[in-house]
Design a protein around this nucleic acid. Sequence first.
RNA 1: GGGCCAAUAGCUCAGCUGGCUAGAGCGCACCCCUGAUAAGGGUGAGGUCGGAGGUUCGACUCCUCCUUGGCCCA
Length: 972
Amino acid sequence: MEYKNTLNLPQTEFPIRANLAAVEEKMLGFWKAEDLYDQILEANIKNPRYILHDGPPYPNGDIHLGHALNKILKDIVVKYKGMQGFYSPFVPGWDCHGLPIETQLLKNLSDDDRNKFKEPGNKVEFRNRCKDYALKYVDIHRREFIRLGCFAEWDEPYLTLDPVYESKIAAVFGDLAEKGYVYRGLKPIHWCPHCETALAEAELEYEDEKSPSIYVKFEILTPSLRCAQGIPLSIFDGEGDKGGEVYFIIWTTTPWTLPSNVAIAIHPENDYVFAKVGEEVFVLAEGLLATVKEKLGWHSVEILKKVKGKELEGIICKHPFLDREVPVVLDTYVTLEQGSGCVHIAPGHGIEDYQVGLKYKLPIVMPIDAKGHFDQSVPDWLRGMYYDKSNKVITEKMHADGTLLKLEFMQHSYPHCWRCKKPVIFRATEQWFIAVDHKNMRQEALKSIQHTKWYPSWGENRITGMVETRPDWCISRQRSWGVPIPAFYCKACGKVHVTGIFNKAVVDVFAQEGSNAWFAKEAAEILPKGTKCECGGTEFKKETDILDVWFESGVSHAAVLETRDVLSWPADLYLEGSDQHRGWFQSSLLTAIGYKGRAPYDAILTHGFTVDDKGKKMSKSLGNVVDPQSVVKKYGADVLRLWVASTDFRNDMAASDKILKQVQDAYLKIRNTCRFLLSNLGDYTPGNRPGLTGQVSSNASVSFLLEIDRWILLRLNQLIEKVTNAYDVFEYHLVYHALYDFCVTDLSAYYLDMSKDRLYCDAKDSKSRLSAQYAINEILNSLVRLMAPILSFTAEDLYQCMKSEILNSKLETNSKSKINPEIQKGSVFLLGMPKANKEFLDEKLEAKWNHLLEVREEVYRVMEVLRAEKKIKSSVEGRVELYVQGNTKEVLNSVKEMLPMFFIVSQVTISDYEVAPEESIAGQKVANLKLIVRQADGLKCERCWMWQESVGSHKEHATLCTRCNEVVSASI
RNA sequence: GGGCCAAUAGCUCAGCUGGCUAGAGCGCACCCCUGAUAAGGGUGAGGUCGGAGGUUCGACUCCUCCUUGGCCCA
């Protein structure tokens, strides 16, 4: 007869081919049809909340790998928390305003349209186009995020362009203004003359640029009193106090800022020398004398005097080409790295210059207009000239006057506009600021940072350093696509109004109509009738600047957490790339400190950036970009998700096709292992245990299980502990390794391989087989839940298949989510995470099995020799003779019966170590062991393929061993 | 140029507060099975722990410098 038909071979509907692309699409449909996201929330509605607040990406183009990584990480957090029983809603958001969309749009316009949109009257139309553009990409992003398997409130995301959101922006702005954090001031800022806009630090790109490098002499007009007293030098004699041929030397790479020069700064503690060269005397830092000497080609230099910089304070020099007196001032930021140690100061064109200017009350000379041209305040030979062109004219003029000592060119890193890629300049303009030192905002922020939990811990250090040194926050931009700064100017007296009824009017109108109302309406239409300025004025002008988009996203805690019922303030977690220490974490922190007095988050988790397999950043030019859409197409979203989980995201994360291929291999191994588990449960009723009929609801005792099954459940419960702990601290790469190693080693290589014989060959209802199925059922139920936050599609696919194959299962679930598994509409995400069952955590059993597995290694090593000699093929053809003593003897004897199964051989004998024959081989790792592996005695049983001496002794079934004979006889 | 971070086998990761010949899985090589089969099993070869100094009886682990890479800033 065909004995194969009497075996209990694995059987399952679950296909061996993953075919993820199709399965995932199907599953997305299923989740949507089930409203699974809502179901999960509903299930946990009475439980504690866990709020992960989404940082809004910018909707432009398709999502890239970084976006995918970020959202998948968030999704893992949210799904895990949900499965742990937390009420964990996730409201995704997009940062819709800002320069990129504006410039993108302008780029695609005809010249006529572009000019049309420069007219203030057409702003609303232009903004509507921006809105359409933003919404289009929000849709694309959303579709792509959904495809990754991320669960979220996709139908109602938050958008910074929503009226409610915009209204809240205005409200928070008003609140901060009310508290005095907001001020207006003239300040040099990065300015792009091409885009005619102020740029934030984040909007700058540093690239090499060729610039002139010039040395200029400033003639001393009047040595200061102190200087004259302290240094009654011959150099100041002769023409009396009129000075004479004595000059300061300054060095600069921006000749065009010289018309704005109002001072020369030197370091108070550095030594400065009076160097006589020919008939002239030059003042410069001693530390740079050698450099300057070489640069200027001085042959002989005579040092007339050396003084500390502070002694030179107050000397008045003459501007090289303007009728202006220029004082010498002190500042410690002056360095000896380059130049002459004497720094040309133009407070309108440099941030340090500006600060020195504040200290010395220097005027802010600012003759450059918004387009980068000189205005009327400069001599006629400069008027109207583009700043960059003036470099040549100015140096030529100074050359002609003899004030230019040296002109050369140099390459150096220079800021460029992130959009137009053109060089930017520092230019003083009227701007709106948040005063970060007002009411101790900075100190409060630092305090809040200490109270926040940072993952990884160095994040605290990093953001602390940034907050400690950051300057005031410039929040105004001269653009169209954003939320206007809600400020009114009294036409009569010029006073600015940003609080009280002025703010409330804006907040209301934004909430009703969105911020377009600001551009569509006159001030009088926005403000309540009869609104008056203190001066009595009743007519107001609207501010034309808009807010920095960082301010918009920075108030998301207020605009989203406070306005959505499902959410709450503060969030439990913010999770973004490590660049956000300077970006969103900080803008959110500062606005929240001003608004509510504390950080809007309890914990921050940051991830690194995606790089290629050589550790280089991904860029189009390097051609090493990994595109998530292609990955999803080629491998499936679950493989991408597994990649996210497999890499320690606190560092950079390497991705390449080679790496993804490896992740796919791992994925397939996990999937296949689960499939095999599933295929052995086809005829199993969950809850059934050996020796008992019917179902039991709990395993009050594990003694009914075979030792090997107790061991694998021990390993399973260790896995559950390990995985749970790793999930809790967001270390998903440990989850991945633990799950994977469990599948590869514990299950595939050990347990399942060892269990095949009893699963296939023992009687269907035998104790040994039921024991295995009990364990396998436990394992599969745990695995699908452990993997679900990461391998969401596959876990769900498996679970759905289990449901159809194993109905009525009684699953042990986390008490927080009591799910009735009999519900047909269930999802793996509605089950709790498994909890480790301490009953199985038997340390003695573990130690014993570790020892046994070492013996197994010895056996297989020796068996390999036999195989090489072609004496046996598979291990079942083998007979293992063990010669043991001591501890090893004890352990092996205690499990004597199961050793054939354990080694997957036909026969095992145990003898005393002393009687080991000559040809036996000593264990390498196990000391008390010698062994021999030879061909098994007897014949091969046709049914179970084991070699037994009993084969041939049964009349009915002459080709069967005793065990198989019994099984087959009983079943017929 | 400054701040923060990282660097362990081809790949992804372990290696706690310094202590036995540095571990795992994958990949690779060779072999076996064909009752997990577009699967499964076994054995084996792979590392001067980025480099150089230093502290220590002892350093992959601590310190300094350097190199490379990443983020942020100038």
